[in-house]
Amino acid sequence: MSATQQLTFLTRYSLTLSLAVFLGAAVLLPWVGAGPISLARVLQHQSPDYEIFLQLRVSRTLLALVAGGALSLAGTLFQAMLRDALATPYTLGVSAGASLGAVAVIAAGWETFLGVPTTWIGALAGALGVLILVVGGAFRRRRISAFSLLLTGIAINSICAAFIIILGGFAGISRSFSIARWLIGSIDATSYVSLAVLTTVVLLVSATILTQARSWNLLAVGERWAASRGVQVGALLLQGYVLGSILAAGAIALTGPIGFVELIVPHLVRSRISPDHRLLMPCAFLLGGALLALCDAIGRIVMPPAELPAGAVLALIGGPYLVWVIRQRTSAEEI
């Protein structure tokens, strides 16, 4: 078997498996919840099973799959750009900007604008503001580097965190609780129109990112390394930051700043399947979506009738897992 054949076999195997997990989650997880749903009643469009299944379970499962995939891919992208397996959309300030925007509208008491939840508008506006500030601040002498992006991102992150605390302090008890809950991140039933918009944006942006997978490989080794192999480093970094921010902001607008998925999944795929972004990125997207949907399903059944937010479930599973992974690493793998 030649090297190409081996690679193709590995590609097909890991991608097929990841796709099977993703589709399995999409088909099975809507059936998981506090109360049982009858397949027969759903097929016969009988209330309330039909409405619960279609309006609540399916929509939130699809939202979790798309948002989880987007966050996981954004994490993978930022990790390649910053050459750091711990980099996430939070590191570069995007999540903090989106959170500040959403927290601002919650604190102001605005709920909807033209029928659209204002948290979505606030999160997108906040992420866009941070995007402009970070990119503008990172440009030096008409050049942009991962290091300047990182430093500017961290600075803006801290500023946003400070404003979130200040707004929380002035918001009153009821709104402070809403802010705290939103900041944990959760998957709620959403309209199919919103879901279609998010899915379209996420698929288009993800496809654009994937077409550059070979360039992300080079950038993950180093900027000078990538440049001397033909990559336009500055343009690629800028493109990566903008596309990654759109993915993260789109997901966060609908779910809140859910953490860990963008850290755990890329790490798992990188160490178990391949660090090659041609495989890593599609697998991270598919498995990230499946993991978030699974966490949301677990949150629905652990303490009925109350629901645990998906972000909390993910943190409870992901935190110990990450510690375990770090303890399993050999000294040669320390980075």
Binding site: V221, R229, P275
Partner: peptide, 27 residues
């Protein structure tokens, strides 16, 4: 060159072929 992310030696050498091909995987 630090290459902190866990690329194999062969994958790293393979990156040398980047300017010569548009193929998704190396020929």
């Amino acid at each position: 060159v630090h290459a902190d992310l866990p690329f194999s030696a062969e994958q790293l050498v393979g990156m040398g072929r980047y300017p010569h091909t548009d193929r998704w995987f190396e020929s």
